[in-house]
Design a protein around this nucleic acid. Structure first.
Lengths: 159, 159
DNA sequence: CTGGATGCAAAAGATTTGCAAGGTG
DNA sequence: CACCTTGCAAATCTTTTGCATCCAG
């Protein structure tokens, strides 16, 4: 499994005849520090936090993320309705719990999902990619608030 | 839990002071027959299969789906990178296995996921909405083909 | 009748792509 | 030096909105 360091990225790229560029390193660094972020967030991060390194064009971010996903350095998940979020592959040791009430994203031990992955493998021959796993539902807090808004609700900050 | 029939939809709508319109029924019927479909597919379906009923504007489809999701008649999932897919809520008795190799979507017994939901509930107090659950990975067939395309591959029909 | 719903067209976003210029190996 | 990459701008797609008109209740 690919590492998170710039060196590891460089190597992974060169191994495939691809080039290690400062933009790609910036994108990787952004994904690393942000935990999970949309392409746009990555772009913003690079321009802000990594100002010294200069900015990276949004389309380059898209291309870099797609490439890095292909070589296994990052992976993406659809957390909400909007853009997908990317995360460093080696950081994938937890699963995402996306609350549709407050929009919060918490994490839980990926261990919990192994039985499911195992079961699916047996029953369907399907190899589950746990890196993409995210659960949608309601966090403890929102579960309570849900009661009285049976019809209008579930959208504190949905968008 | 809401039913799939037009009558049930009408009732669910009226109960909330909302209106039962032919467009909404068409959309529900499309979702029902398609199993899981994107807003666009729903729109196409209505114009083709339900031609007699006339067509429904795409934005109406979006509004209808959003509404029906709110009242619990349908639910959506992010199966692939693209648009989300909607399904009738009462049809949610299986989980989706999305193959990133061939793009195929197969189903597995939702039962398999109960232990996970249970575990998450205990450890995090998070109430998982199984209707939104989909697993990404590789189906049996693609798992074999994967071996020799370590870098170029995984995109038979990705888009 | 009255207020919610629809169609249309325009607006807003999110992604992708063509291409010339630039940088890595 | 060759060829992969980037930036930019334009092209696509997807989803949302404003509004006048229409229709269910």
């Amino acid at each position: 499994m690919a590492q998170v360091t710039a060196q590891a990225l460089d190597q992974a790229l060169r191994e495939r005849g691809l080039r290690a560029t400062p933009q790609r390193r910036s994108v990787l660094r952004a994904v690393t520090e942000l935990g999970h972020a949309t392409p746009e967030e990555v772009c913003d991060f690079v321009q802000t936090e990594s100002a010294e390194a200069g900015s990276v064009n949004l389309s380059t971010v898209y291309r870099a993320l797609e490439l890095m996903e292909k070589i296994g350095v990052v992976s993406h998940t659809h957390l909400t309705h909007g853009s997908p979020t990317y995360q460093v592959a080696s950081h994938v040791n937890h699963l995402h719990l996306v609350c549709r009430g407050c929009g919060s994203i918490t994490e839980a031990d990926l261990e919990l999902a192994h039985p499911l992955a195992e079961a699916v493998r047996h029953s369907s021959g399907f190899e589950t990619d746990l890196a993409h796993l995210s659960l949608h539902g309601l966090c403890g807090g929102c579960r309570d608030g849900e009661r009285d808004e049976a019809r209008g609700g579930t959208r504190e900050q949905e968008r």
